[in-house]
C-alpha cells in the first residue's frame, strides 16, 4: 500500500452528518465498504464496537452510522439520522455490541462487522483513524489495508503460481494503472486474497475476465468512497 496522498477535498470534507468525523462518518464508511465487499442479501448483521467507540457510541450515533452503512447509506446522506427506523422498515436484522476489553492490538477506534447470508458469512475489521478516514484491516480472515480512496478489486483465489501476474496482465492490457497490489494467504497452497487498487473505474467486463480464471473463486469490486 502506497503512502496516501492528502488532497484538498480530503481536508474540505467529507460532507457528513454530525457529530463526529471519526465516530460517525468513519463508522458509516466502514459498514458501507463491508457491504460492498459482501453484497449478498443479509440474513443478519452484527456490529461490535471496540475502544473509544464502545464507550461513546450512543452519544455519537455510531450505531445509526453503522446501520446506515449496512443499508448502503453514505456519511453525507440525511437518512443516516433515522437509519434505525429504516432498518426496521427494511427488515434488517442486526445487533450492536460494545466490547469493553477487546484485543490490545486493535486501533483505539475499531468496528468489527460480521455479516451472514445463507451459508456465506464474513468478518471485517475496520479502524476509524480520524477526520472520517478509515482502514479496513482485516477482511474475511485475511489481513488487509483498504482505505477506500481508490477503486479496488478483491480476488479470492487458490494460492497458485501466476495469479498476480495474470490479473496484472488483464488490467494492463486494458490500459488500467495499478496503484497497489497486496496479497495475503492463510497458508501455503491454501486460499489467498489479492487486493488490487486501480486508478479509474474498471468495467464489469474486465472484472468478469478475472472471475473466469481457473484458480479464482470469487471476485468483488469495491468502488472508491472518496467523493
Amino acid at each position: 500500500m502506497s503512502e496516501r496522498t492528502i488532497t484538498l477535498l480530503d481536508i474540505f470534507g467529507p460532507v457528513m452528518i454530525g457529530p463526529s468525523s471519526s465516530h460517525t462518518a468513519g463508522v458509516a464508511r466502514i459498514a458501507f465498504m463491508a457491504r460492498k465487499i459482501f453484497p449478498y442479501p443479509l440474513d443478519r448483521a452484527k456490529v461490535s464496537f471496540h475502544g473509544s467507540l464502545a464507550k461513546t457510541y450512543k452519544g455519537h450515533g455510531s450505531d445509526k452510522a453503522a446501520v446506515a452503512g449496512l443499508l448502503g447509506i453514505l456519511p453525507e446522506d440525511e437518512r443516516l439520522g433515522y437509519a434505525l427506523e429504516l432498518a426496521e422498515r427494511e427488515g434488517l436484522s442486526y445487533e450492536i455490541v460494545a466490547v469493553a476489553d477487546g484485543p490490545e492490538r486493535y486501533h483505539p477506534n475499531t468496528a468489527v462487522i460480521e455479516l451472514w447470508s445463507g451459508d456465506k458469512s464474513i468478518r471485517i475489521r475496520g479502524a476509524s483513524i480520524g477526520g472520517g478516514e478509515i482502514r479496513l484491516q482485516s477482511v474475511g480472515g485475511f489481513e488487509a489495508n483498504l482505505d477506500g480512496s481508490l477503486d479496488a478489486i478483491l480476488v479470492l483465489h487458490k494460492d497458485e503460481i501466476g495469479v498476480i501476474a495474470i490479473v496484472s496482465h488483464i488490467l494492463a492490457a486494458s490500459r488500467f494503472n495499478i496503484a497497489s497490489v497486496a496479497s495475503h494467504r492463510k497458508d501455503k497452497g491454501d486460499e489467498a486474497l489479492l487486493v488490487v487498487e486501480v486508478d479509474g473505474v474498471v468495467p464489469s467486463s474486465i472484472v468478469a475476465q478475472i472471475r473466469d480464471l481457473p484458480s479464482v473463486r470469487e471476485v468483488v469490486y469495491v468502488p472508491s468512497i472518496r467523493a
Partner: peptide, 18 residues
C-alpha cells in the same frame, strides 16, 4: 451546534472544528 445535533456539515478539517 448543528454538527453536535447530528446535522449535515463538512469536516473542515474535522467535524468538531467544522
Amino acid at each position: 451546534e448543528v454538527n453536535a445535533c447530528g446535522g449535515k456539515v463538512i469536516a473542515f478539517p474535522t467535524a468538531g472544528s467544522c
